[in-house]
Design a protein around this nucleic acid. Structure first.
Lengths: 203, 203
DNA sequence: ACTCGCCCGTGACACTTGTCATGCCGGCGC
DNA sequence: GCGCCGGCATGACAAGTGTCACGGGCGAGT
């Protein structure tokens, strides 16, 4: 009986190393690769085809949520666990929609990580129960994928023209999406809209 | 020759466990206790008198910085290492004033933690070199009080007119201050300026 | 086949924002 | 006294932003 092969994606190098050390202590688990961002994780997925992917959400290059969706689509044999600081219902909802099988908080005891890896590998779901209840009660993400993508860039300080170039759209269209997002969120401008969306976990 | 005894303080349980696992892999180090907040760390210090204390900054009950100062005053034999996410020069300065011997970022490779523990135990200082340079070289806060006051509000999403009303200035003047702040920070617009200022700890 | 939602685009308009030239005033050094 | 600089203010202009009306295409459901 061979060990469960795990890929860890986490942008803070020391935490990445520490998590790897944590799982290395379990005889039935093996950390087959590590990645410091979403893009590197995709490469590692292709090369290693691990049984389980454990990923943070907030990473450079590609967030853990889009990584989860990519992984789901291209490597369905790999189960995804989101491991994050943030107990935002919006994150959980999007994680589940992206096909994640587990959602774990960094607040939880260390032992739960190894246990979660085993359980998703058996095909079970592992969701923080407190968070699951809260997620059901909260209002759903009103933003479309495009709106989120564009609002995120606007929140970083990019201009409409810059965003248009980045996502290959016309500037007018970008302004339309922003206008739509602003009105959906009841904000007065793109800055406030980005702030609200971030706080609700929709970015 | 006995192992170096280490106390770890960190509020995120999983990270705490992972860091402990990381140090447990080093034969010359021993994690003698763990604490989930500053108050618990003080109790553990009293009970265990460890050689080295590794602590996060942002914790409930008592921050790592005040914990460092307390430890320095009451247990001078224990050397303190601050381990944090934030590369803010202001934090580093306060950490050193509190008597910390090490300041390490969670961004750094995992191997550096064990090495840092050994070095502070030998009486050396361990300061992230990048951060040390930045802390001394960085022009301390180019913003005037007015600029800060106004840029902060702009970062919250308020318009120039709203800000003008709040601080009893003309709208044109508000725009002038913002323009000045934007150029001082090398930003392209108020959003980016606010982001940069926040990141540098100037807001 | 039809509607509905999301996607993408255009053009026009009013408003906001960023920049610049210009000025007043009070403190500071010489 | 004099120049000089930093804080504060104004007005004017160009560029960027938010809104609206309107158009097209595509896929999912009824």
């Amino acid at each position: 009986m061979s060990a469960i092969r795990v890929l860890i994606a986490e942008d803070q190098a020391m935490i990445l190393g520490a998590l790897a050390a944590l799982l290395a202590g379990e005889p039935d688990l093996a950390v087959c690769a590590r990645a410091a961002n979403g893009r590197a994780a995709l490469l590692a997925l292709t090369a290693e085809r691990p049984d389980v992917l454990v990923t943070d959400i907030e990473m450079p290059e590609m967030t853990g949520l889009t990584l989860a969706a990519e992984a789901r689509a291209r490597f369905p044999a790999t189960q995804v666990i989101i491991l994050t600081t943030f107990a935002r219902p919006g994150y959980l909802r999007r994680a589940l929609e992206a096909g994640a099988r587990g959602y774990l908080l960094k607040d939880r005891p260390a032992a739960e990580l190894a246990e979660a890896v085993r359980r998703v590998h058996r095909g079970e779901r592992v969701i923080d129960p407190e968070l699951a209840a809260e997620a059901w009660a909260s209002d759903p993400d009103p933003l479309t994928e495009r709106e989120r993508q564009i609002l995120w860039r606007a929140g970083e300080g990019r201009s409409s023209a810059e965003i248009a170039a980045e996502v290959h759209l016309s500037e007018g269209t970008v302004r339309n999406y922003l206008s739509e997002a602003i009105s959906k969120l009841g904000a007065a401008n793109r800055i406030e809209a980005a702030r609200i969306a971030r706080q609700k976990g929709w970015l």
